[in-house]
Nucleic acid binder design. Sequence first.
RNA 1: GCCCAUGUGGCGGAAUUGGUAGACGCAGCAGACUCAAAAUCUGCCAUUCGCAAGGGUGUGAAGGUUCGAUUCCUUUCGUGGGCACCA
Length: 1008
Amino acid sequence: MEYRFNEIEKKWQDQWKADKAYKVSNESAKPKYYVLDMFPYPSGAGLHVGHPLGYIASDIYSRYKRLKGFNVLHPMGFDSFGLPAEQYAIETGQHPAETTKNNIATFKAQLDKIGFCYDWDREVRTSDPGYYKWTQWIFLQLFNSYFCNTQQKARPITELINKYATIGALPRNGKPVAGVHFTAAEWNAYSKKEQEDILMKRRLAFCAYGEVNWCEALGTVLANDEVVNGVSERGGYPVEKKKMRQWYLRITAYADRLLEGLETVEFSESMKEMQRNWIGKSQGAEITFKVVNGESSMVNNESSNSNSSFTTHHSALTVYTTRPDTIFGVDFMVVAPELELVQQIKSASEANAVDEYIAYVKSRSDVDRMAEKKITGCFTGAYAINPFSQQEIPIYISEYVLAGYGTGAIMAVPCGDERDFKFAQHFNIPITNIIGSHFNGEEANATKEAVLENSGFLNGMQMMDASELVLQKLEEQGTGKRKVNYRMRDAGFSRQRYWGEPFPIIWTDGIALPLDAEELPLELPHVDKYGPGPEGEGPLANIKEWTNISPTQRRETSTMPGYAGSSWYFLRYMDPHNTETFCDRKASDYWNQVDLYIGGTEHAVGHLLYSRLWTKVLFDLGLIGYDEPFKKLLNQGMIGGVSEKIFRVGANQNDEANSFAGHSSNSLVIKWHLVNNIPIILRPDDGGDLNYYLFSLSADLDVDSYETSLIRTSLNCVDDGILDIGKYKLHKQENSLHKDVSSYEILLCKDGYYDSKKENWFNYEKKPISPLSFKTIQVPEKMSKRYGNVVNPDDVVGKYGADTFRMYEMFLGPVEASKPWDTKGIEGVHRFLRKLWRLFNDDIKGKVWTDEKATDAELKILHRTIKKIEEDTEKFSFNTAVSAFMICINDLFDVKCHKKEVLEKILILLVPYAPHIAEELWQQLGNDSSILDAQYPTFNPALLVESTKEYPISINGKVRANLSLALDLDQKQVEEIVLQNDVVQKWLEGKDPKKIIYVKNKMINVVV
RNA sequence: GCCCAUGUGGCGGAAUUGGUAGACGCAGCAGACUCAAAAUCUGCCAUUCGCAAGGGUGUGAAGGUUCGAUUCCUUUCGUGGGCACCA
């Protein structure tokens, strides 16, 4: 009987489904274990072989834990709201709900073929009304909460209202500031709208006008982490700054707790570091400088509610610095051009220049700014007064200072800051050196270890100590205070799109009123057109009857971003069908934190921070019992694709007269399609006729002198690294604008080696080459439909079976490592499974397993394997576990062991990795119950105890001999035996050894 | 520029945490079985000198600590990832 994996896998997948073998209960006497995968976005392209890597790892661990006696929750679902479905809808008119449904069906079919142990009864889809009802509900909890600074946690907003109505909002010390502080009486006298506006500034989900990343092409705003290098992460469209009313989550309030929480979870160091960088906490000081205007036209306006934190009059300029110790080195000030303050301090004589400069800055997009980092700026005509030296310091504006960070203004210390230094040079501002020889006048030196000079009362002090003293003085004078700053901004939470959760908010007379919980879910209305609405609003604004409830009531027309649904999905799995609450407290208490979370690093700052935030808020409000969602995070690497590339040769740089000379590499693409006899040059296989190449060009062509570039072929045209020219021509014909390919010549080139860095060939060796065999060049590249290098797991599973596929993906290397997919090695894993099969069944003889008693040697093989597999699985070292299985089967073959006593234990070890074959052979051994619930074998150390050890004997650290010695020998006995050894004698050359090192059970080293 | 990883045969990768470098697999070579192929099995497989016995060299590079270093330290180079006018 042979190993017919297709039949076996189908049979058991059906059986397990019928038996509900993966059904998980919330009631169990067993200890719980929660294994979670980052659920996929169901894209139209389906799964490729890279996706399941993490799923396989989590599946192995889940099954392992189950065998170990745990009640294991291992669910799967779909993050099914999002941009691509909507883009597709715009293009094709198909409703996102429809395409999403189809895509999910494809995904599920693909996943099921791999044999995962998901409890599909717990599946969640973020776009289901039954699911997003609770996303909306949690949003309302955020809306109805504020962050209490004394308790450092979220509290119901009603508590704040109570406080305002009874005691008001008064400063803890200092004078009340208008617009910020008020008494209870004042509060009670405010209009409803005024009260709501004040409350909005405290809500955890709030609405505000702010600069957002507006993407015109996508017709929506994007969160900071969705913008990469000034363009949208999805699609790569330009992004501009725009002031709009947006919803936000007040994640900045949780900055400290998000940082502290990292200490309590097992994430990789790099992952934690990324989150820390994103939060970007820094400690420093806010220092207030008095401002004098050049023409002394002092302004005296009330402070505005801009994003600067000005609380005093505009006769002052507050800056944020992490280096208060450099206060005497301040040679100028720089204010962000966007700040309103600029208008108030600019002097009459400079006003024109200032306005011109501001107009210039506005004209520049983020992309421009990043592309060319020019030094630009403009003097305002105003001066600031140094609070210690009382010196007048000129105030400039420049785009290098960001309005959104700190106070939007800096004190510039050119001797200690590179940017300040360059700015000073550019505008010829004299530089004060406060760090003596540390500053060479050529470039700034940001040292923290200098002794201060030219620094008034700080002279002679270490910078570190000076910081503290300056802070104290500032506080005494009331001109500054300690201040912690964060780079992180509040998270933009609205999108001008259709395919997302609608906000359960109705605008009434400009007040955002939440829906009642009973009115949820607020379902997405049906639309016919997905185009944007008027004035930058989303498609929902086009449906008047839905949007305009009454003359005074209007629905919110933006929808929630992609990360809304994924911020809490791990909770819904615990209690997916509950219609009363998002997740019953009993269920979330039972399953508690996710014990193991597996997913890619691409979500390091987005999804992980947001779900950590939501968890903390839910915890603060007493809705769940823990404030970190994920106990341990394992990052799987990305499996990349490999593109099969060939060379195209362009113009000969030296020979103008050549038939294809004179084309720049840019025009090559076109020329290649248009001009006859432009060669595609392929790296040829070994063997064949070198002259063919020279002959066909009838010239002594040196490829090195030509522009060469790599072009992709399609995987379909390549078999085992050899290009099929016929298929390739056909492929080109189908995909080319110019259907006539008859003129394309494919030529051979001398062999050489390929330098991937320079994308060029070097060092041609004169090897004979074959005119008929064309090797392609394999270049690792992202797996993408566009590149034609996608490998579908269905194909691999069809050819080798799910068990082989699972084990092979693990065998490729450590799960955390990124690597390109390469099908070549899969044969080895497949051979292993067939070999395992032959321990039970012979192709000719049929059943070969026996009931005989196992020998000690056989038990030793078994228990060595139990130990190794268990250890490796525990530490997620799945690649070495697979190799341990191979060693075990090889060993059992060597001793011809076909004994059930040994084999059935091996099968249990194998279940997590290759469940189908394990179950099949388990049943063949005569077991009635499923192997999925078998008991994990226990390792018996007694069986592996050895009495002797084959020691390597080294002389001066180099192994020269091996010697089998009893383990209970002491140093002296060992020395005697070792010295009698012939090889040792030879190396000693009659001398006495200086020293003999004997490490029990390890090695022996003789020092001569 | 800053931060974090990482570097081992033709290839993917092992190495019990300082103790026989290259497990396991792929590819390759030689052989067995077969009319043949597939499948399977056996042997070889870092490099170099040597008929062999046996030596030399070798974990990106250069130093150091140690009886002994892929592992620890210093310097340096390459690759990958993250952040990037964040004051």
